[in-house]
Design a protein around this nucleic acid. Sequence first.
DNA 1: CTGTAATCGAGACGGTACGTCGGGTCTTCAA
DNA 2: TTGAAGACCCGACGTACCGTCTCGATTACAG
Lengths: 216, 216, 216, 216
Amino acid sequence: MVARMHRSATPRKGRTGRPRSAEADQAILRATRAALVDVGWGRLTMGEVAARAGVAKTTLYRRWANKNELVVDAVAVLFDELELPDRGCLRADIEGVVLQFGALLARPETKTALMAVVAESTTDEALRERIRSAIVERQKRLVLLGRARAQARGELPPDAPGEDGERAAARNMDLIFDVIAGAVVHRTLVSGEPVNAEWGREFAALLLSGLSVALG
Amino acid sequence: MVARMHRSATPRKGRTGRPRSAEADQAILRATRAALVDVGWGRLTMGEVAARAGVAKTTLYRRWANKNELVVDAVAVLFDELELPDRGCLRADIEGVVLQFGALLARPETKTALMAVVAESTTDEALRERIRSAIVERQKRLVLLGRARAQARGELPPDAPGEDGERAAARNMDLIFDVIAGAVVHRTLVSGEPVNAEWGREFAALLLSGLSVALG
Amino acid sequence: MVARMHRSATPRKGRTGRPRSAEADQAILRATRAALVDVGWGRLTMGEVAARAGVAKTTLYRRWANKNELVVDAVAVLFDELELPDRGCLRADIEGVVLQFGALLARPETKTALMAVVAESTTDEALRERIRSAIVERQKRLVLLGRARAQARGELPPDAPGEDGERAAARNMDLIFDVIAGAVVHRTLVSGEPVNAEWGREFAALLLSGLSVALG
Amino acid sequence: MVARMHRSATPRKGRTGRPRSAEADQAILRATRAALVDVGWGRLTMGEVAARAGVAKTTLYRRWANKNELVVDAVAVLFDELELPDRGCLRADIEGVVLQFGALLARPETKTALMAVVAESTTDEALRERIRSAIVERQKRLVLLGRARAQARGELPPDAPGEDGERAAARNMDLIFDVIAGAVVHRTLVSGEPVNAEWGREFAALLLSGLSVALG
DNA sequence: CTGTAATCGAGACGGTACGTCGGGTCTTCAA
DNA sequence: TTGAAGACCCGACGTACCGTCTCGATTACAG
């Protein structure tokens, strides 16, 4: 089996031959999202995507190794829409990002695809890495930005100096990311309940003050 | 499409005909879990399950409409293993349940199956309901038990009296359930990091005291 | 494997237990023929026959070993309808029997079933024997009767005396039976053309006088 | 049901796409005949044929709509082996063709398949047409050739001139074909007796001279 | 302006699994 | 013991997608 080059930034080391169509890439990703909306992950087929994109199946496989990787790329871009507008205080920033994330997960193309590729990633290391780099790591920026803003506002203390402090801070960011993202994902996809303003308020309150106060 | 009778609690309304084998049920669920361990969700086939269970494929389809519903039932029972031993204080109880849940999700038969059926449930209302009743709702008992213990110990205030208070408390329980379960699921399956004692401590601290104190 | 008793004339040697329903037999054979008319051999199922007869599949299998034998019995009785009314001369008798046989083979329940069981019989010795005894041998009576009449009328010479003569006559009867039955079957089922009065006349002429005269 | 293109003479109207493998066709037909020999019609499965041919089941279904049509094509070619060597006189020619045809029907791949497809053809017009064009009509050449030779030798009178004469001759050919083929088929497959030299002699005598003389 | 080399759409290919259907057996309860 | 009902095992069905391949036809750059 010869190694092939999927998604190479530069099309080829050599430079002869017909170059890949750049439009095709976008058409395929668009078609993938559209198909996800219409039929969901379970009934999504490469043939269907190719047909919608007006492209041959071969063209898909020249660029993505399989359905999972294609879907990750098709969905990843949606996560880049997430932003963290400055709402003045940490609590409001948390509420804001939670609502945005909840709205994103409510869209059919994300809700149906995200859990599916995560599931596949449990037995596919390459896919796990792709998800991590294309989705997870990129969204941690929101947590970092929120913390920086809160520190600037004096709502949170500055990082402890030294290497240990940095490591502890990084660990904390991962924890907080898992808590925020996990709660929204679980509420939306597992519990099947909407993430609305009321839930956002309650979640932010809990996250900020903890059980002791929140329930006190 | 003819209506069929899957998983009927009472074997039959009438009483004629050969009754369904109760052993087959258990053999199939056992075989499903074993196959999940060996080949994962993606390569799990009904034929394989049937062969392992020493049963005909037809027998599977008589009882479960499809792979998803079978897997939900096969996996659901594992969640019933979760317990909440009294560790003396709320913080320790949280750490304990988080570790247990993390260990459960680390097992191959759960990690590979849970996300997959959740993904399918986004386009399958019947499946969503099955997941909710077989898994989600049943595990809320742990949260309720934890709260009751904490109230008994005086770590948390008793419920506010009246109907409003009860409703608020129920909403809080749902919120806390999503936060705990979501964080563990996200860390394990999305971030791909282990839930160990250290993370458990940090998570419990955050949950109890909130960002303000945890990071303060 | 225990030997079982299919189609035994006397239901059982012992006499305890519920006796077999005689009506069921007829109902099953009738249902078989009806189903053959409706769906043909290819789509004929034991379940369908049982349902039409208002009988359980078990009952079918208690009486016939398999579908082929059931169909042979269901169809065989139709062949007993064939008669050889005395039309005054050998030529007319031949025309008469050919038309009768052609009409029988034009009925959907026979045309679809006869070739099918014959086909199965090529790999099933028991079935071949059943066909021979239930259908083939029984219809040779027509040829024998026709010959006897023709001899009585003086249209054919009497049998040569002695054992050799008898054996030769028997061999001739088999030959003539194959020619008559074969021609009708082939025309009806293979060539797919009707056996009508005109064809009957031409066939009788050929059979009586042979090519030399028929075409001379 | 979508219309598909089975057995198209011209591979495609358009000219794009990978062309169908011509070798696969032959391999499949060869495998079909081999499987017929080994397991007979009743146990012949498409999967078995595909496996023997080293081909995917899909490839079979792309080319033949079902088992019946495949078998007709696989067996039809065997009938083309039949020849009519000039044996000097009509009687000898008849004996020769009868023996050849008998030998062909004695081969397991024909005996088990021919009646089966004829049986199916009673409820499948397309199949009947395929049998007629692929087998029946093509073998009438033998009858025509035999008659032409006999006429050349002066054993049979020439055709009556005029349109009526031609039509009568054509009808006669059909009749004779049904008689010869029918007798051989019936003796071989229904009566289950061999077509040997002795039977051939007796049949030829009967066909040439008729009952009146044959039995006189 | 011509050759080389990669692309493109199209569709056949070998596979694997699907979910269904039918055959023939077995098990239960009622008659 | 028979009968109706229906679950059982088995094996084949015909379909749907997978991911690969083989075509003829483009399309770019290199010489």
